[in-house]
């Protein structure tokens, strides 16, 4: 329990540092946000007035504190391009991303671990060779390309699944419709992470399987299935879980491509659009929310690992 509290406390400086990075990256943006908003033909007086409104005439440190204070009260500012509060837009988009990334994370964890264990058990057999090669292919596929191929194959040619969006435009809605729209993007998004997790699981299992306590368990007459799935897998999980945490970051980030390809109304696509329209408030808000949730996700992974491994005390 002390560990949990300590770990929770450690998250605070990380979150603070994260906001500093986001703020300072975007505060030193070349060009003037007011000019970007008002367009090239704005009068200098208007630009100056807007700058004052946005608080841009104050020193950076003060700007940061004001911004942070607003964030903590849930005020992420207004998106000028969409003309609505940033938080509303981000939360709406982020829920779409979470559905996509969550489905992909579930898929890659399940398949990755299954494939990895299978490879380790039959090391150097034909299934191992085939699956390890597949895993290398998996981690090398550009997801934006794979998405296009999937659309060509399953939407354009076979017409099995929809190519874009989250719901059908006419008469859409409901879980079944969502699931149909989710299949292709989620699969596309999970491919790379599946490869990574499979490769890691394989090497973690092999590493564990050659350790003394496995030999000792065999010497005690423990059955081979139990040796592999109880003894070895349990020890390997300690190294696998943090990697799943890291992969969650890759999946959240990789969602940018998949959302763009499949027109998924997620936060990644929102960010790309916001960057091209230079809607800074929206970029800041989106990055902070996604990064903060990723930090919390990693916290969960750490706590899970702690629950599993009694040796971690610090």
């Amino acid at each position: 329990m002390r560990y949990v509290i300590r770990r929770l406390m450690a998250v605070v400086p990380v979150l603070l540092g994260l906001t500093v990075i986001v703020f300072s990256i975007l505060a030193f943006l070349p060009g003037d946000p007011a000019t970007a908003i008002l367009g090239p033909y704005a009068t200098p007086e208007n630009v100056e007035r807007l700058n004052r409104q946005l608080g841009l005439d104050k020193p950076p440190a003060q700007q940061y504190l004001i911004w942070l204070g607003n964030i903590l009260q849930g005020d992420f500012g207004r998106s000028y391009s969409l003309n609505r509060p940033v938080l509303d837009e981000v939360l709406e988009r982020f829920s779409a991303t979470l559905i996509l990334a969550g489905a992909a994370l579930l898929l890659c964890t399940l398949w990755g671990i299954l494939i990895g264990v299978r490879c380790a058990v039959g090391q150097y057999g034909w299934s191992d060779r085939l699956l390890t090669l597949t895993a290398v292919v998996g981690i090398s596929v550009p997801s934006f390309w794979l998405g296009l191929l999937a659309i060509l194959a399953f939407s354009v040619n076979l017409r099995w699944l929809p190519a874009s969006g989250m719901f059908a435009v006419y008469g859409g809605g409901g879980a079944a419709d969502l699931a149909r729209h989710l299949i292709l993007p989620a699969l596309t998004l999970s491919v790379v992470a599946t490869g990574v997790i499979a490769r890691l699981t394989r090497s973690a299992m092999l590493e564990v399987l050659r350790q003394d306590f496995i030999c000792a368990a065999r010497a005690r007459g423990v059955g081979e299935r139990r040796v592999i799935y109880r003894h070895a897998f349990k020890a390997a999980l300690v190294t696998i879980i943090p990697v799943i945490g890291v992969q969650a970051g890759f999946v959240l980030g990789g969602a940018v491509y998949v959302e763009t390809v499949f027109q998924w109304p997620g936060v990644g696509r929102m960010l790309v659009q916001a960057i091209s329209t230079r809607d800074i408030q929206l970029v800041q808000g989106g990055v902070v929310v996604v990064a903060a949730s990723y930090v919390l996700l990693n916290l969960l992974a750490d706590l899970a690992q702690h629950a599993l491994d009694p040796k971690i005390k610090t």
């Binding site: 540092g17 994260l18 990256i25 070349p30 990789g254 960010l271 790309v272 800074i280």
Partner: peptide, 15 residues
């Protein structure tokens, strides 16, 4: 602490 590509996006947004 940033999801991989998100940080790259933020940096490109700045630069």
């Amino acid at each position: 602490a940033f999801p991989y590509i998100l940080l790259a996006l933020a940096i490109v947004a700045a630069l």
